[in-house]
């Protein structure tokens, strides 16, 4: 009726390569890393004795958010050594999510599987490594596979579940959560943008005014995506903190 041609999903994820093997997602990832590094360099350049302003204030607020909102809430004081890793994770994911709503870019780099997969595998390696380092190989796997306080007979049931949930489901859900949230948001924005465009250009002039409805929805969803971009970065980081905390201190 509206002659709405929705492009296949591959179409809205396809980007020409700017340089050999460097496409938009790669550019966004590199830009995210560069922006973070530049912001932190500018922040460290400022005189630290004065009250922080501008970039330094921003960087310090982020650091304090990660310290107080993520590390202290999940790992406690012992986990403060993990702050730099969690901070870079948070900042990188946020800066990869944010282009989803920035005009011209309009593509969250995390809506492609590559970056979430890389990060969650990295997190998997790190929390298993931290657990093995702190409790020894046997101790770590004992605390993971045979959690204390479970009746002996139940181990037949608990151990496979724990193995699957800790070793397989955790990185998978971490990866899929970030990827699917961002991809769903991206598809939603594309859908409403296409809908309002189709209505604005409808051959039947009666339909043209109705184009503002999906447009308002688009604006609302863009605001929602701002929240989602932040929330997904926060959730990825806090789950990482929980996993690392659990691997390092199994009694908690």
């Amino acid at each position: 009726m509206f002659a709405l041609e929705f492009p296949p999903i591959n179409e809205i994820l396809r980007w020409r390569e700017v340089a050999p093997s460097l496409n938009k997602v790669g550019i966004i990832a590199v830009a995210a890393a560069l922006i973070a590094i530049v912001v932190f360099i500018l922040a460290t350049r400022q005189d630290h004795r004065k009250a922080p302003t501008g970039v330094r204030n921003f960087a310090e607020t982020t650091v304090e958010f990660v310290e107080n909102g993520i590390v202290m809430q999940t790992m406690g004081r012992d986990g403060l050594g993990w702050t730099p890793f969690l901070l870079s994770l948070f900042v990188f994911i946020y800066l990869c999510n944010a282009p989803g709503i920035i005009p011209i870019l309009q593509m969250p780099a995390t809506a492609r599987m590559a970056i979430p997969a890389f990060l969650s595998i990295l997190v998997w390696v790190i929390y298993n490594g931290a657990g093995i380092k702190h409790q020894g190989f046997g101790g770590y796997f004992k605390s993971v596979l045979f959690p204390p306080g479970v009746p002996k007979a139940l181990y037949a049931l608990v151990t496979p579940i724990e193995f699957i949930s800790t070793i397989i489901v955790r990185p998978f859900s971490l990866m899929v959560r970030l990827f699917a949230n961002m991809l769903a948001g991206h598809i939603l924005l594309v859908t409403f943008a296409l809908l309002s465009e189709a209505l604005f250009q409808a051959r039947d002039k009666v339909l043209v005014p109705f184009g503002v409805l999906p447009m308002f929805m688009l604006i609302f969803l863009t605001g929602f995506e701002v929240l989602v971009a932040f929330l997904q970065a926060y959730i990825f980081t806090i789950l990482t903190a929980v996993y690392i905390g659990g691997a390092v201190h199994p009694e908690h």
Partner: peptide, 26 residues
Amino acid sequence: TTMFLGIAFTEALALIGFVVFILLKF
């Protein structure tokens, strides 16, 4: 904090459904 953690775990199921949707469709 705990609420966000719980949401993250609960939401994962819906998101796996979404991924299955994409897998089936495309």
